[in-house]
């Protein structure tokens, strides 16, 4: 009985909701810290960001974490849908007049709607960036313009071992790009160097796109507003679901949760706003 209790009961569903939710809060912090690098501009900053993106997509530890994150998102969403359906069933006939605002905050009553919007955002966001990073056959590789000493600016690809490959060599066919990022000696067919996927350029181009850049920026900022409301209730709620309620710490958890819900989405929203309007 105990085992099924930990999977099937309404309380257990809330434990999983809380655990996955809090893990996703940790993910948000990590994701934010990485993305804040986008607030720095210039070739140097672009290289740092692309090196970071390279690390995040190739490091085995990060890979494991990313799978836990995908799992958490899916589990949190499915568990949430199951709970919402069960909760709706618990009151088949509603009230003619219901003054819910008298005893609850708006966010707490609309977690399912807010969560659904966040899921739509996550899918959109992954199509916009994650899918290009993983599947785009013509993904741009990071280049840099260097004056080789003769007063002529030359374009070079920067490679993962810190050296430079002249863009000319790819253009004239000496080298060719295979597997999206690898520089191959065209005649010998041997891998020579590996370039950095230019996620920085993809991101900046996306939010500065003359056709949809403004709309994308506004929608991304709005998505962060939705996230803020979801976190405003969700953060503290997760602790309560796990039974972590102690009068000595409740104030701290509540206030930290509210600060988290405001600061994290706000910082996220600043990135597209900065790129579109200031950069």
């Amino acid at each position: 009985m105990a085992k099924s209790a930990l999977l099937k009961s309404s309380l257990a569903k809330k434990y999983w909701m809380a655990l996955t939710g809090l893990f996703l809060c940790l993910f948000l912090v990590g994701h934010l810290l990485g993305n804040l690098q986008l607030l720095a501009s210039g070739d140097e900053a672009a290289l740092h960001f692309n090196e970071y993106a390279f690390f995040m997509t190739t490091n085995p530890g990060v890979k494991i974490l990313s799978y836990v994150t995908y799992f958490s998102i899916l589990f949190h969403a499915i568990d949430g849908i199951v709970l919402t359906i069960q909760n709706r069933k618990a009151r088949p006939k509603g009230y003619v007049k219901n003054n819910a605002a008298a005893n609850t905050i708006w966010a707490s009553r609309n977690m399912a709607v807010l969560g659904t919007l966040i899921l739509v955002f996550i899918v959109t966001h992954m199509v916009n960036f994650w899918s290009r990073m993983h599947f785009d056959e013509n993904i741009p590789l990071q280049t840099v313009s260097i004056d080789a000493g003769d007063g002529i600016q030359q374009e070079f690809y920067i490679t993962t071992d810190g050296s430079y490959v002249p863009k000319k060599q790819v253009e004239d066919g000496t080298l060719e790009i295979r597997n999206r990022t690898d520089f191959y000696d065209a005649r010998a067919g041997v891998k020579y160097k590996e370039g950095y996927k230019d996620l920085y350029k993809i991101t900046v181009d996306f939010f500065k796109n003359p056709d949809y850049g403004l709309i994308a920026t506004i929608l991304y900022a709005l998505a962060m507003l939705v996230l803020a409301f979801h976190l405003y209730h969700g953060f503290g709620s997760a602790f309560q679901s796990m039974g972590l309620n102690n009068p000595s710490y409740n104030g701290l958890i509540k206030n930290f949760g509210k600060a988290f819900a405001i600061v994290v989405p706000l910082m996220f929203a600043l990135i597209p706003l900065y790129i579109h309007f200031i950069l």
């Binding site: 309404s10 909760n87 618990a90 819910a100 005893n103 905050i105 009553r109 679901s241």
Partner: peptide, 18 residues
Amino acid sequence: MVKKMDEEGFGACTNTGA
């Protein structure tokens, strides 16, 4: 008691505090 509560068709807790 929790098993019975679920069987009776009560919903889960969203911690709204109502």
